[in-house]
């Protein structure tokens, strides 16, 4: 049968490809909506890129006018969009919060819970170096020597973890504490499975990272 090549080799792998896609899509959605950078999903990205390559090789074997070719191409383009947009969103955050991400990441690397992939980490470091040397050559070197001190800590931009986000609970989570600023009556709420809420990102940041809630 000529469509054998397009077929995934066995049942098990097929379920995985579908799950990988779903995971990537959720990761993309979360990354787009979370104020801070989230732990990377490099395994999923790599796995899907491999899948795409495999598919593309097979599509090229099909005649151009084959209906299947255009359907598969369309699906691959949709998946590529998700991956590109996901990676770009992460790079945007890395550029914006470069210094604070690098500081946090150094600590996370020690405990082995890094959020950035190796290449993202390298990108962040190079970005910071370039920014520093750019600022020095264009401005600092032109001013009197006693004003040339350069303090990176003054340039740090932090993501606003207090910003409000919409979420949907994937499973029931109880006892989310909402800080009450005007009084001292901190409020405690429960997130029932399937319910939707708007609240501050900070108290639910860990729930986003472990997949108990989905940002919408």
């Amino acid at each position: 049968m000529d469509h054998d090549g397009i077929e995934l080799s066995d049942e098990e792998e097929e379920i995985t490809a579908q799950t990988v896609l779903k995971t990537l899509q959720n990761a993309w959605q979360n990354e787009r909506l979370a104020p801070e950078i989230l732990p990377h999903q490099n395994d999923m990205v790599e796995c899907m890129l491999g899948q795409i390559q495999h598919m593309e090789r097979n599509i090229n074997k099909l005649p151009k006018t084959d209906l299947r070719a255009s359907i598969h191409k369309m699906e691959l383009n949709r998946i590529k969009f998700i991956i590109c947009n996901y990676l770009k969103t992460r790079l945007d955050k890395i550029e914006k919060y470069c210094i604070s991400i690098l500081n946090d990441e150094k600590q996370r690397l020690e405990s082995g819970t890094n959020y950035l992939t190796h290449s993202e980490y390298k990108y962040a470091q190079e970005y910071l170096l370039n920014m520093e040397s750019h600022l020095k050559t264009t401005a600092l070197n032109q001013v009197p020597g006693n004003m040339q001190t350069f303090d990176l800590n003054k340039l740090v931009i932090y993501p606003n973890l207090q910003s409000h986000v919409f979420l949907k609970a994937n499973e029931t989570v109880t006892g989310i504490v909402l800080e009450d600023l005007t009084g001292d009556q901190d409020e405690e709420i429960d997130l029932e499975e399937g319910s939707q809420h708007i609240l501050q990102y900070k108290p639910i940041a860990d729930l986003v990272k472990n997949g108990k809630v989905q940002l919408v």
Partner: peptide
């Protein structure tokens, strides 16, 4: 500082962004 919005669809939620979260 908190609201529950069951049964709102994604497009509806999206239509009040960024107004509502930013006001909050």
């Amino acid at each position: 500082n908190y609201g529950r919005l069951d049964h709102l669809t994604m497009m509806e939620i999206n239509s009040v962004k960024p107004l509502l979260p930013e006001a909050m």
